[in-house]
């Protein structure tokens, strides 16, 4: 299978989860934007792999390293960004990826020049305390499970829809997949940020090919709609269980978004 594609997939996750782990708003925003560029690289690369008659999968070997400080994370990202360059070829897409990553390396290196950018990382401390809120234990437990369930699910949806989008020739389907991918990126970002706040940031587990190689799209959509209904129910249950206005409003907001996902998915039938 395509090694560069796997490395790109892992690099996207590295930068994305670094953005969740770091508390500084500016650095977080910059890294998140870089992660979206890496995701686009991944999409373009996937298209090229298929066009060349090859294939790719979603295998991963890297784990999420629990770094202690912002600088540890930034140094790690520079190493990983430099490492992938050894895999690039010489076409126009590769040239684009090289120039993007040269800029990222330069930008991250500049952050390392300012000691004020360094800080302790709290995203992995397992404290399970949501910011300044004092949620009772059972609400904290419910929120913990929800975040693990849904962060995995959003990651799964991004990859499954991307896999199908790369292989469809139907424009309506292509557009629906894009909408659903965009929505799941937002949800994954929201849940990843919440996990980091609670000190339980973790990489979603790897997808098995049985999950993303879809043989029967109709069954996939029907199961997917049932899953969205389940996610809506989970949001509602959580919203009812958590006695905090800000969190309640957030879960209601996500719940209503899931309703429209179902409408989007119906267009695939």
């Amino acid at each position: 299978m395509n090694k560069l594609y796997q490395a790109k997939h892992e690099l996207w996750l590295d930068i994305l989860f670094a953005s969740f782990a770091i508390n500084d708003k500016q650095i977080k925003r910059d890294l998140y934007n870089f992660s979206t560029i890496e995701f686009r690289h991944m999409k373009w690369l996937g298209d090229k792999v298929l066009k060349d008659g090859d294939d790719y999968n979603y295998d991963r070997t890297k784990m999420l390293h629990k770094r202690e400080s912002v600088f540890d994370i930034l140094r790690y990202l520079i190493v990983e960004l430099k490492k992938i360059s050894a895999l690039y070829g010489e076409d126009i897409l590769n040239a684009r990826m090289i120039t993007d990553e040269d800029y990222m390396i330069h930008h991250i290196a500049a952050l390392l020049d300012n000691r004020a950018n360094d800080a302790q990382i709290t995203a992995f401390n397992m404290a399970r305390k949501y910011a300044d809120k004092n949620l009772p234990q059972e609400q904290t437990d419910a929120l913990t499970i929800f975040l693990f369930e849904e962060s995995y699910k959003e990651y799964e949806l991004i990859l499954v829809y991307a896999y199908m989008q790369a292989r469809t020739t139907n424009l309506t389907h292509f557009n629906v997949f894009q909408d659903l991918i965009d929505e799941s990126h937002f949800h994954l970002q929201s849940f990843g940020e919440m996990m980091a706040k609670m000190g339980i940031l973790a990489l979603p587990r790897e997808l098995h090919s049985m999950t993303y190689i879809v043989k029967d799209i109709e069954k996939f959509v029907i199961d997917g709609i049932a899953e969205e209904e389940g996610a809506k129910e989970m949001c509602k249950t959580l919203s009812d269980a958590i006695h905090d206005d800000e969190l309640k409003r957030f879960f209601d907001f996500v719940n209503y978004q899931e309703s429209y996902h179902i409408e989007l998915m119906k267009k695939l039938l």
Partner: peptide, 10 residues
């Protein structure tokens, strides 16, 4: 939800 379960989740 105990620390051991949390480790398995993470």
């Amino acid at each position: 939800m105990n620390p051991e379960v949390l480790e398995h989740l993470m």
